[in-house]
Design a binder for these strands. Structure first.
Lengths: 242, 242
DNA sequence: CGATAGTTTGACACAGCTCAATAGGCGTGG
DNA sequence: CCACGCCTATTGAGCTGTGTCAAACTATCG
């Protein structure tokens, strides 16, 4: 490597060079010069399963890009009933702009790695760079579409359709390489049965029973409770009801 | 009125002068000069109850501001099961930017008046004016928050909590003058029992039974099926479960 | 190999659904 | 003004899918 190349590479911060978020995520909106500024204030963190990232009604001081792992967003009623209202996969952006407090709870469903930066930095950059706000709008619209799709699942699908819909959702999102529309797909479930129940508006027992039915019917195979093989994506799709 | 005043007023198009959307809605982001351009291409329309504004998988050529009335956004499964995924009140913005096709159905739940403009005009203006895109982001974030709140209702609340939540939602949104936190609130239901059922993920019979219970318990009064008096907003809130 | 947390399975209960009949609101026409 | 018909809402009776409670099973890890 020559000195020239070193100088050239240094335009993009080391931290960002192999980062997914720079390509498909929010940071793709930034010029190399802006990236340098932001990278100085940002830090990568590894977070273990179960740790709370953002508490309900808590002041939020930083935003993050999800680099790997799955984050669950949930809401809880006064008496403890819980509903997961969204899952975030890489390279999603984590944080609710223009609001000091979070109205929901964000928790690492698996091991998660994040790239975080101060709330203020992003908000300052957003004023300078319309492209950044544009990306944020696009991601928010995507999340809104997903939320509305899920409302149909919650309101109008049967327990077995709900479980099939969930497996389909994971199968389509867990693969970081993008959606390869194969017949057979293999993955580890990022959620426990309790989480799945909270996502689907069901109980763990019902989730478990429906998984057993799908297994006995040969639509999926399960090893060690977490490792799932979808034998036929199309058949699973039909079970999901839409 | 003097000529000077006429000249001064003419900065803001006649069409927009008494428009709600100019204050609390999207158009508030626009300079008078931009407003003039947009107003030339926009038109007001009155739409009657039940007419379809945007069909599923239909090309959308225009956006609108809701000036009055209520619009229901819904999705339908292959076998006809339906779920209402959102309601829009004045001065909400109707339309899904950056996507040629709609993934949902928009229908007038009541008489509705709209101010519509070509898709292309807004998108052009959005490129010029970051403030416009900012407003859109803010409205989209609001809708996302609402969708997630409703997911809790759909997934985790009982039938009676769902009906109470619905009445609360209407009571808080129907008043165009804003949320006056009074004890007693009166309004006409913008939805039929069938619509309410589709919004809550219930059947009409269950909705009807829960309304009867609320009426017999004195939480609400109903006249002519549509005219509702909430006797005590706080008590209704407690019935909604959060 | 025992402890612990997560999962599956079974038996039963009940909230909400289905089907069916009745009642009420409202416009039309005599 | 009443009579009729249509549409929407209510009420009732019985059924069923999903929840509840309890026990057994399985994976993982010290």
């Amino acid at each position: 490597m020559t000195i020239r190349q070193d100088i050239h590479n240094s335009e993009i911060p080391v931290l960002c060079q192999s980062c997914e978020a720079r390509h498909r995520g929010l940071c793709g909106a930034l010029e190399p010069s802006q990236l340098v500024v932001l990278a100085k204030q940002s830090w990568k963190q590894q977070v273990e399963t179960g740790s709370e990232l953002v508490g309900d009604a808590e002041k939020v001081a930083s935003y993050s890009n999800v680099l790997s792992g799955v984050i669950k967003l949930s809401k809880t009623l006064a008496d403890g009933r819980q509903q997961i209202v969204g899952l975030q996969f890489a390279p999603d952006f984590l944080g609710r702009p223009f609001k000091a407090e979070s109205a929901l709870n964000a928790e690492a469903a698996t091991e998660v790695s994040l790239c975080s930066f101060p709330k203020a930095s992003i908000e300052r950059m957003m004023k300078e760079s319309p492209e950044l706000e544009h990306r944020l709008l696009v991601q928010t619209l995507k999340e809104l579409d997903e939320a509305r799709d899920w409302m149909v699942t919650l309101g109008r699908k049967t327990a077995s359709e709900k479980v099939a819909s969930f497996l389909l959702l994971i199968a389509r999102n867990i693969d970081p390489a993008g959606p390869a529309p194969q017949k057979e797909v293999v993955f580890d479930l990022p959620l426990t049965r309790a989480d799945i129940a909270d996502f689907l508006g069901l109980t763990i027992e019902t989730v478990s029973r429906q998984m057993t039915i799908l297994r006995k019917d040969g639509v999926i195979a399960i090893e060690n409770n977490r490792h799932v093989t979808v034998r036929d994506m199309e058949r699973l799709g039909r079970r999901a009801g839409d």
